[in-house]
Structures are given as structure tokens and as C-alpha cells.
Amino acid sequence: MPLQQLQGALFQYHPHKPHLVAFRSPCAPAGEQAIAAGCVVLVAGLTEGPLALPFTTALADTLAGMHCELVQPVLSSSYLGYGTGLLTRDIEELDCLLEQLYETHGQRNIILMGHSTGSQIVLAYARTGKYRTRILGGILQGAASDREYYATQLADLPASLAMANEMRAAHRGHHWMPVDAYPDAPITADRFWSLVARG
């Protein structure tokens, strides 16, 4: 796969977490000037972040032709951080991003687009996000069931689920699961449960 490259602006969006940034692509093709008609916020899936998806540059170019921006945030759950928190943290961080886009960057027309597990974040935001009534809509691209995926990938899933359940019952849901229970990334019992438990 050829390496992708985008032109644009990188900006911080969270007042208390300076490591959280977002990348904003231009709202017009190279050489043209335009005022942004809107933007699409692309929320990537597990282990992903900006430019992780093979269609990112094509999406940015298509949106630029429509005088719209593509915004790619780094959330605390981006890359291997997904095991360190729950959807409530993703929603709070998206609240800060949308506030920046609305108030500082002058955006009025915002659509959230989730890829894979990012679709779950978009659905959760549409239910409880601070600006849920202001967004124009949501796109669920490649929506996936993490539970069904891990049912085929984790060798001893019942035992790992039982361990997570015991930790949560003992009010240790925010503690780390052992590496042999989930080798992909550091993950708390609460996050493991939310990814793989039924319901």
C-alpha cells in the first residue's frame, strides 16, 4: 500500500489534555480558496488513528472538492490506548473537539463518521454527546461487532470473561487484565468486558 500524505493544520482541542490533537485538511483543492461549507470528523477504530485507513486521502480530496474539511482526531483511545478507558471518555473528548470546531473554527455543519469500532463511538455520541442535537448526522463505515470478532480470536475467552467479571464485582474494573488474557494491548477489566461481553 502506498504511503499517504495530507496537507493541513494540526491543532490541540482539549483544554486539560495537551496530547490530544486533531488534523484538519483544507476545504478546497490545492490552489483554490474557499470557506468551509462543513466538515466530516473521522473517528477511527481499534488500533487506528489519523491516516490509518487506506481511503483517508481520497476522502479528504473528495470533501475538498465539495468545500468541506476532513478532521481526524487523536483520542485517548487511539492506537493502543483503547484499553485504558470507556466510551464515556471518548464522548467527553469529542465534546471538546466539537466545541473547538463550532466556537473557534467557525464550523456549523458537522457530520461524524465512524470506522469499525469508531462507529460505536459515533452511535454513543449521538445518544449522549453534548452537541448531539447540533451535528448534522453520522456515518457508520465498516461497522463491526468486537464481541463476535474476539469470540474467534481469543483462545480462552470464557475464562477471561469470568476473570473480568470477578474483577468488576470486586470494584477493580479499572485495574489491568493480565497479558495472557488479552495480549493485544493494555486493557482494563471494564474495557475488556465492554468489548467482548454479550449485551
Score class of each variant (00 low, 15 high):
S160G: 00
L195Y: 14
P158W: 09
P158N: 05
Q153D: 04
N165T: 14
A197W: 03
A189Q: 04
S194Q: 12
G199F: 01
P183Q: 08
E148R: 10
R147Y: 04
P186N: 09
R198Y: 06
G199W: 02
S194N: 11
H175A: 11
Y150L: 06
A162F: 06
W176C: 09
M163K: 10
R147I: 03
A164I: 06
L154D: 04
V179C: 07
A189E: 04
W176M: 13
R172C: 12
D180K: 15
Y150N: 04
Y149R: 14
G199R: 04
A169N: 08
Y182V: 03
Y150H: 09
D180W: 11
P178Y: 03
Y182T: 02
L195I: 05
L195D: 06
H175N: 09
A170P: 00
A197T: 04
M163I: 00
A189S: 07
P158C: 07
R172V: 03
I187F: 02
M167I: 01
T188H: 01
R168K: 12
R191N: 08
D190Q: 14
L154Q: 08
Y150A: 02
N165S: 14
H175D: 15
F192A: 03
L161E: 13
P186G: 08
A162L: 14
P186S: 11
A185P: 02
E166L: 01
R147S: 07
Q153W: 00
A169L: 12
L161M: 11
